[in-house]
Design a protein around this nucleic acid. Sequence first.
DNA 1: GCAAGGTC
Length: 692
Amino acid sequence: MAKQLIVCEKPSAAMKVAYALAEGSVKRVGGRLFPAYSLTRGQNAITVVSALGHLYALDQRSVGWSYPVFDIKWVPINDVDRRMARARAWIDSISKHAEGADEFISACDYDTEGSLIAYNVLRYACRGADAKAKRMRFSTLTKQDLVAAYEGMSSELDATVIEAGRARHELDWIFGVNVSRALMDAQTMAGGCYEVLSAGRVQSPTLYAIYRRENGIRLHVPDPYWVIAAEAEIAGERVPAEYAEGRVLSLSEAEGVTRRCNGADGVVSRVSGRRAVIPPPVPFDLGTLQSEAYRHFGFPPSRTQKIAEKLYLDALISYPRTSSQRLPPSLGYARILEGLGRNRNYAEAATELVSSGRPLRPREGKKTDPAHPAVHPTGNLAEGLGRDDFRVYDLIAKRFMAAFAEAAVKEVTDVEMSCGGDRFLARGEAVLIEGWSRFYAPYSFLREARLPKVSEGDPARMASVSHDAKYTEPPPRFNQSSIIKFMERSGLGTKSTRAEIVDTLYRRGYISGGMIEVTELGAGVITTLKRHFPRLVSIELTRRVEAEMEEIEGGKARREEVMVSTIDEVRETFERMISKEGGMGDGLAELVKAKREGDRTVGPCPSCKTGRLKVIRSKKSGKRFIGCSGYSSGCRFTAPLPQKGRVSVSKRRCKECGYPIVEVRGLGRYVWRLCINVECPTKRGAGRGGGG
DNA sequence: GCAAGGTC
């Protein structure tokens, strides 16, 4: 009887693997905080344990803050990321379960990162078990797939995939950490105050895309064009119509159309009708959920992701970090819909779907994910959700139900009218079958436009025709949703990291605003990188890393060779950078100074009206407060600040008194938005208690 | 203190 240890990527997967493989009962053996399951299958006694994503991370071998650093090693992740403090005890638990085992099996997600996660666990937490470990390969976490993966597991780990994964980690570390340090070193050596600067394979090309868009906007020359709008009178009704040729590029042409047609009689020259079938929207992958929540609620993608992760931990929705738009039948559609039916918000809709008599078959999208289905509700009763949590949940629940509903159908009628040699078009749209749009309301909208019934040859009087001058618009700024779509299109980052990387760009002060603009500092970093490290701002680096990973995976290259040749290439660049560091940092130091100045400027002084309010730290007491830059010319305005927490300036103004608002973070879970006016009416009555 | 990637 063999004692087998199966290593999964995350706790939820470990539980599924355990229950899928068990022939008898499953026993929890890991204690309260650590998931581990004991079961038997055939002659084997199996223990299933779980990693927690990456339990090991790269760190430099040397100590100190010099660069360039090329000598790196894998360490327990709690050594380098204090948010992963749990990892230490977690690894110990895995080691304990490994002691009694004589066979080891990797059952992490069947992708590069998953293969590497299991490899590191087996190698470091299971005393070199990677050498003899086997690999289960599966594409879904269904019982059927997992049993097949167990029965047909390969006799060794996928060594070249693991090597490709290690190469990706090492390349990202070496480029990212060293270039970030180079920027910071150069900046401080040029006399700047200490400031965190960063660069990386994903964040820098993303910033560069925003920077290029900014330049496109600045360099845009508006070209004039004219739009001709008309109101046509057909069958005794006035309907809006547009010029059939679209926009017109000269004023004389526009004037000609208006002169010829305004008030003139014409004729209906063609009527065509068709039915437009509008299928339900596809189920949510994380990116689509993020963009839909941005569209309807204005939530930045990182906020949607955090809310979705919370809903997942509360077992209300499925795993949100998925790129799948598929809902496999094994989810149990009816069970989920019946669960939703217990919620009175969805009772009517869910019941209708279950009892419609039509088979439950969802619309599905093209995108897939090896490890997870599309984001969907679990059917557990969602109660007492906060407003924002509810909105995201509601969107997910309704999107799920909509996927099972009928297609919507519209009747579209195009009416072409001729007025001399000029043609105009009017379009009518009527909803024949609402279908899924009822289930997705209020997030769905089917446009309608009524047209009277007409036939060819009917009179059509152009009751009014006018032209309007317009100018071509510059390309639009990215917003938080479109920049993430850009990253996805360009293959930058993953579904789990894109939103976080955009957040990093904000946190560094490289970008600002909802319609994203590059700050002076962001532009300065791009200019510096382009001069000294052009490769890092180009998405070509990602293409190259992908190509190298493919070569390693295919056995055509070895990780060590790739690393040695890459380091050889970049070593020289770093040496050149160090020798020129002073010059490289000059521009940056100025920009960092300006940024810090901006960061502590609260706004115009409400007292003297000429000075600016700033966050000031008293040299005498060490305490911080808000004071006016006009102090030397006599303005004595001050306002107190809390001495604890991180204070940042916001663009908000108090709704009651119009004074600036500062944000205080790090005192409990919420951001404290504080009006700086001590006499503000919002502060009357209940004062704010100490805690937060 | 720095990347990008996984996870609760």
